[in-house]
Amino acid sequence: MLKYLFILLSVFSIHAHAAPIRIASDIWCPYACDTNTGYVVELTRRAFEIQNQPVEFMIAPFKRVMLELQRNNVDAVIGLSKKAIGNYQLLSNDVIVGYKSNDFYTLVDSTESFEQISDLNNTQQVAVVTGYQYGKELDTWLNSHPSTYFASGNDPIAMNIIRLIKGRHSVIIDNKNVIEYTASQLNLNQQLRYAGTIGKPVPLYIGFNPQNKAYVSAFDRGIQMLKANGEYKQIMDKYKILPEVTSADARYKNLQKFLPIFD
């Protein structure tokens, strides 16, 4: 009885907030998309709504998102590493919402490959997203080379892909899921080539404003409720839908690169 009483009191404490919880992200499809969709957006929204907590989402460039959080205009940010959460002095739980990786893409006719930092010394220009962290060693290389292009704005991944196609730079770096998903939406995926990954995948979490500690446990509780009632699987299945291909086996194989890894 004490256990259930504690859960009820926790739920009531989050309901005491009259205003919706304000959650923000930049565009990082299929995790967070410009139409307030994306599997992490939908999972986060439903995790709170299932507890009768309304949610508002804001899509903005990463730097602005973090600035608004520091101004207490945002309660939570989607898809942060533990390092970023620590740097911004935020709160989080152990719910992994995806993985970040440093994946390299070139034009399809390129022969470049990237397995270590020194491989970048022979490329013409690298494009990344401003405000993102790519790991200490890679960040040092990017910031020490004036030719590095740092994309900003509301849809920097799409910008980097388009600039790559136009020959403005020779390689782009970001998460493989995001690059391939965005390229497919632009109908440019056939012009891109995966050229390697440097480093290990880094787990991503939701970073919460420390002024709203109740939201941290509420999110964890909401995710467990979604898994129990089947909504979690429904949302994940929704984002596995891609255009039909000729073979069921080929379809299954193609889908794997879009799926997150969850504990």
Results as ranks from 00 to 15, higher is better:
Ala19Lys: 15
Leu188Trp: 06
Gln70Lys: 15
Leu67Met: 14
Phe258Glu: 02
Pro54Arg: 05
Lys166Arg: 13
Glu112Leu: 15
Ala76Asp: 08
Ile161Gly: 02
His169Ser: 00
His15Thr: 02
Tyr232Phe: 15
Asn87Gly: 05
His145Leu: 10
Phe114Pro: 00
Met159Asp: 07
His17Ala: 09
Leu204Arg: 03
Glu137Phe: 07
Asn229Asp: 15
Phe6Leu: 13
Glu68Asp: 14
Ile23Met: 12
Ala127His: 03
Tyr181Ala: 02
Glu68Val: 07
Leu226Cys: 01
Val97Ile: 14
Leu43Met: 12
Arg221Tyr: 11
Asp109Met: 10
Pro30Arg: 06
Phe6Thr: 07
Ala18Tyr: 12
Phe57Thr: 02
Gln116Cys: 06
Ala158Ile: 04
Ile223Phe: 07
Ala60Asp: 09
Leu67Asn: 11
Tyr194His: 10
Asn36His: 15
Val171Tyr: 09
Phe6Arg: 06
Leu242Ala: 01
Pro203Lys: 14
Gln53Ser: 08
Leu2Cys: 04
Met58Tyr: 14
Ile223Cys: 00
Thr148Asp: 04
Ser147Leu: 09
Lys238Asp: 06
Ser144Ala: 11
Ser184Tyr: 10
Tyr181Phe: 12
Phe57Tyr: 14
Arg193Ile: 03
Lys233Cys: 03
Asp103Tyr: 10
Tyr105Gly: 01
Arg193Met: 06
Leu120Arg: 05
Val171Asn: 01
Arg45Asp: 00
Arg46Tyr: 06
Pro203Val: 05
Asn121Glu: 14
Gln190Asp: 10
Leu164Lys: 02
Tyr31Ala: 09
Phe208Trp: 14
Asn36Leu: 15
Asp237Met: 07
Met66Pro: 00
Ala250Ile: 07
Asn189Asp: 10
Val245His: 08
Gln185Asp: 08
Asp119Tyr: 12
Tyr134Ala: 05
Arg45Asn: 04
Val55Ile: 09
Lys63Ser: 08
Ser25Asn: 08
